[in-house]
Design a binder for these strands. Sequence first.
RNA 1: GGCCCGUUCGUCUAGGGGUCUAGGACAUCUCCCUUUCACGGAGGAAACACGGGUUCGAUUCCCGUACGGGCUACCA
Length: 517
Amino acid sequence: MIVRTRFAPSPTGPLHIGGVRTALYAYLFAKQHKGQFILRIEDTDQNRYVEGAEEYIIEALTWCNIIPDEGVSFGGSHEPYRQSERKTKGYYQQYAEQLIASGHAYYAFDKTEELDAARKQAEAEGNQGWQYDSKTRSAMQNALTLSADEVQIRITKDEAYVIRLKVDPDQHITFNDMIRGDVSFESNIIDDKVLIKADGMPTYHLAHIVDDILMEITHAIRGEEWLPSSPAHVLIYQYLGLADKMPRYAHLPLLLKPEGNGKLSKRDGDRLGFPVFPLEWKDPATGEVSSGYREKGYYAQGFVNMLAFLGWNPGTEKEIFSMDELIESFTFERVHKAGARFDPEKAKWFNEQYLRMQEDADLAQRFIPVIKEQLKISDHRSSVEYAAAAVSLLKDRVHFENEFYEKGRYLFEVPTTYDEKVIAKRWNPITAKFLNKLTEVYSTQTTFDASTCKLSFENLATENQIKPGDVLQLFRVILSGQASGVDLFGMVELLGKEEVLTRIKNAISALPKDVGN
RNA sequence: GGCCCGUUCGUCUAGGGGUCUAGGACAUCUCCCUUUCACGGAGGAAACACGGGUUCGAUUCCCGUACGGGCUACCA
């Protein structure tokens, strides 16, 4: 048997990170078993269709490197992969009719208002959970209560109808979930679910089953919110006589809000200051923009790694996993059963780990365009050598690559202001004199690397009976304008003799002459 | 309300009858490194929801309670 899993989102908006995790687990499982991962678009609700959502889903999965073997925009031997198109081919109707023929489904003509009225009346009688089922259907307008002629007349008169599943009462339904083990339900609590809506579209319940059968899905991985309706799905397979075709189910724990109650929702992200979407999304209706991990500067790999660990762990202390390593290690047995509160801090931590793993040369390649565009520099400072050296000084003190520019611009630009506190404390005739002498020493120096410069700096300080500590930070401010930053003599080496001398000269002329006298 | 699923440090989790003085990671605190800021290193504080059972022995198994989550649509 070839393992085939699918990710089947609805194009109702951007995919949130919970959805990405579901896709990831389905992908990891399929790949581990040398199987296939399919992307199916479940667009059966025409009212909720959102322009651009499908493209977003595809782009997001691609960014995460969760690449489907088959699916919308990826092709495959089970086309089409969009449910609206499959509906046109009559796939769902065919199965619905089979259920009707075998007595497991029926036509129902009740209007929305009538259903609402039935619910309201039950509520008035102190019964909160009215549902269309074996107890109530006899009071409704359907093929079980109307004569066959009447049903035929209504259908030919184009009266709106739905097709409902006829759930047999008093059945025990048990199935084995890959994460939860045996789960059981009573059929009495399952309602006669609508299979085909009045607009002719199938509901999720019918559509996903028909497609999973036709697409030969072996393992259905989805969110925990589906657990309550899964017994109905088990029944549909039974009624279809295809119980042997039923995939194994895995119901994933939900992702919860970082604080407060409830599951992580689209609104939480920007409210709490972190993205809930892999990519930035602009709502076509409202124009509202929601931030994305990609745009915030997260690495796709770190993002995927973080997501994998939300509810799963390998049972070892290793935390950094490449996609290949995840494929190798992932198992549903090790997926935690309880919902996981999402922690944006941990997401950042994963990103830092990946940042430190980057090669300086690669970081430099990506930084150079920024140097050229933002700093308008195009000389030796925009070379790979210079950028790589700058990046290596900067690397450990940023969380994201995109901080190199803000945190390191003094490595490229002469400072125009100087940290006032340090100047007030350290700038005086003695230190000014020291800096003048330092200029002389440095200008005669033939080698200008970090250790040589550091040594001559310290020697000069000692000769002048100055504690290095009294001038070290001043020197930093003179060179960078800032009181803290990258390794001081590392910066000296990077800037080079000429630039260092210029910056000292600049500072001396820019700073007040009579301080301390 | 009903049904289902769950419950180990603040958070993500390991552990599934004695090895638990309950392990790791994030966050937090202290110290070291660094006469900067980070990184890094060392250490600290921090949890088995509660009550019954079963057992020689329960964090681990069973039941109940509490709490959390989900579902309860012609949405997925």
